[in-house]
Amino acid sequence: MSDIQPAKRAEVSVWNSGKNKFLARPLLYLVLIFGAVLMVTPFVWMVSTSLKGEGAVFEYPPKVIPNPLHYDNYKQAWTTLPIGIAYLNSLKIAVIVTAGSLLTCSMAGYAFAKMQFVGQKFLFMLMLATMMIPGQVTLIPMFMWFSKINWVNTHWPLIIPPVLSNAFGVFLLRQYMSSIPKELEDAGRVDGLNPWQIYWKIVLPNCKPALAALGIFTLMGNWNNFLTPLIYLDDQKKFTLPLIIASFQGLYSTDWPLLMAASCISLIPVLIVYIFAQRYFIEGITLSGMKG
């Protein structure tokens, strides 16, 4: 935290102060707006195609607003594959993993930041060192173990490992908790609180920004996760949203209006959440970047 200096910012100074402006204002706006339009175009194209009839897709030049509008694609996308169930599956997994990781990571972060114990330094370094290991290395042995205990085609492999092994989360929260003044805990100790009560009642409420940041990352990462569900899940009723979208592609590879309607259905809730929680996304990234 200490390396953020909010007092005086270097706004404006780089580009447009002094005589030699890098870009004049109108030109700057033009460039930025043009870029923003480019960024949003794929989504516009997705929505536009999702409302087209079969024939309209192959028109040249393509129309942005199709006439007539085909809402049927959405109905078809919703009914051909269990997209609603996939929603619930994704939501269930992402929420459980996020809540679970916040708990276990903050517990470990608290111990590493605020307690002294045997092997503390070693365990912390070990944890940091494992952050370098790419997930693909552990993928194969874990798959073999989980098939032994019949966890293949269940949601357990997508829930238990991410909740119990999140070194990044421990690190992020440990760094944040280290900056909480010791006096706060001492006050609790004087009141006769045990370490769990101090953690739960005093330290946790003071880490809300870090918890929000980690929460958003975990939620987003698990909601969009593709490789692990792809490996573990066979039964369509257990599929997560990215898997269902991939199945659409496998089954209807040239029915673009249907494919775009399915993509649209899968993206809309994320975009709505983003619009309302934009501040937390931005703060979360900033915080994690500072720590790194």
Partner: peptide
């Protein structure tokens, strides 16, 4: 107390990271 707090993550680290890496 400290080991109680780190237990979930340290067990997870052993079972889901270090163990699999050695096995791999």
């Amino acid at each position: 107390w400290a080991y109680l707090f780190i237990a979930p993550q340290i067990l997870g680290l052993l079972v889901f990271v270090i163990g699999p890496v050695i096995f791999a």
